[in-house]
């Protein structure tokens, strides 16, 4: 015996009456699982209003958060890494690059742009994690190098927002040398007495940590970001023990003396303004 019986067969709502639920109307926090309307989440600078979890965001989002009226001039936008080693693993590197460029509409794992932060000039070089894990290859190195040249030429401060798994394996020793290249270039910026602020965001590891990310006049970070040289899995395998709670977080790195301060993304612009003005006046 049926408890419920469908009286009319099939879907009865006409197409005209159908109510669409747009994709991505809600944001579910991966940390506390709280549900927030997307527009509220965006307004909150992609931070969970309940637990302050900072969602990973890309260069477009950072530029809109930092630059006045989202106005900026991007430089070397079309620069891409070459494939000097003709590298191929399970896929050819050139194919991987092409597919990633198509998918992300980015040309490499970093974008460099000049804009104003509450009226203060700033060059921001911001990494994009969704471009092959934010990995650093020739493209990233060259764009940073050129951004530094631009800063020296125009006498404007530099901020690099790091978000990267490290050097890009598919460019092997060429990526390794980008660590040397960016660090060497930073000595010239320093000589010109131009401030360099390094903002470390989740995650910043490997060759990026071991080069420009740790070389700021100020090293600052977003809360709760993973920051380290070796990845936590590798460290765990090395010591054969579970890692202590909070290991390699921004708070841990601050406590050990490698960061100047941790800044909530909501206060990033105001604190950045304050910092830039301190250098200026």
């Amino acid at each position: 015996m049926n408890w419920f019986k469908r009286i009319k067969v099939g879907i009865t709502t006409s197409t005209k009456e159908k109510k669409e639920t747009p994709e991505g109307l809600w944001y579910k926090c991966p940390s506390c699982k709280a549900i927030t309307p997307t527009d509220e989440h965006v307004q909150n600078k992609y931070i969970c209003p309940k637990c302050e979890y900072h969602e990973k965001i890309g260069s477009a989002e950072y530029f809109s958060i930092i630059f006045d009226d989202n106005q900026f001039k991007e430089i070397n936008a079309n620069l891409v890494s070459g494939d000097p080693l003709n590298f191929s693993d399970t896929k050819k590197y050139t194919d991987r690059l092409k597919a990633t460029i198509e998918k992300t509409h980015l040309h490499d794992a970093i974008r460099t742009a000049h804009g104003k932060v509450n009226g203060n000039d700033l060059m921001v070089a911001c990494m994009d994690f969704n471009f092959i894990g934010g990995s650093m290859g020739s493209g990233v190195g060259e764009k940073i190098a050129r951004a530094i040249d631009y800063c020296i030429e125009n006498k404007i401060p530099l901020m690099i927002i790091s978000k990267s798994g490290g050097a890009r394996m598919m460019e092997a020793a060429f990526s390794l040398m980008q660590m040397a290249k960016t660090s060497a270039k930073l000595t010239l910026l320093s000589e010109a007495k131009i401030p360099y602020i390094s903002l470390l965001t989740d995650p910043t590891t490997g060759g990026v940590t071991a080069s420009y990310a740790m070389l700021g006049d100020l090293n600052i970070a977003e809360p709760g970001a993973l920051i380290g040289f070796a990845g936590p899995r590798v460290v765990k395998e090395t010591i054969g023990k579970d890692l202590p709670k909070g290991f390699q977080t921004s708070e841990f790195v601050l406590e050990h003396g490698f960061l100047d301060y941790i800044v909530n993304r909501k206060e990033l612009k105001s604190k950045l303004t304050k910092t830039l003005e301190m250098f200026k006046n």
């Binding site: 660590m179 040397a180 660090s183 060497a184 930073l186 000595t187 940590t209 071991a210 080069s211 420009y212 990310a213 740790m214 070389l215 380290g228 040289f229 070796a230 590798v234 460290v235 090395t238 010591i239 890692l243 202590p244 290991f247 390699q248 050990h256 003396g257 490698f258």
Partner: peptide, 21 residues
């Protein structure tokens, strides 16, 4: 470079970066 716990505490990344610079 050694990928150990104390190495991370004492800033392996910063130490290498500083040398490059």
């Amino acid at each position: 470079a050694y990928p150990g716990l104390e190495a991370e505490e004492r800033g392996q990344g910063e130490a290498i970066a500083r040398n490059l610079y």
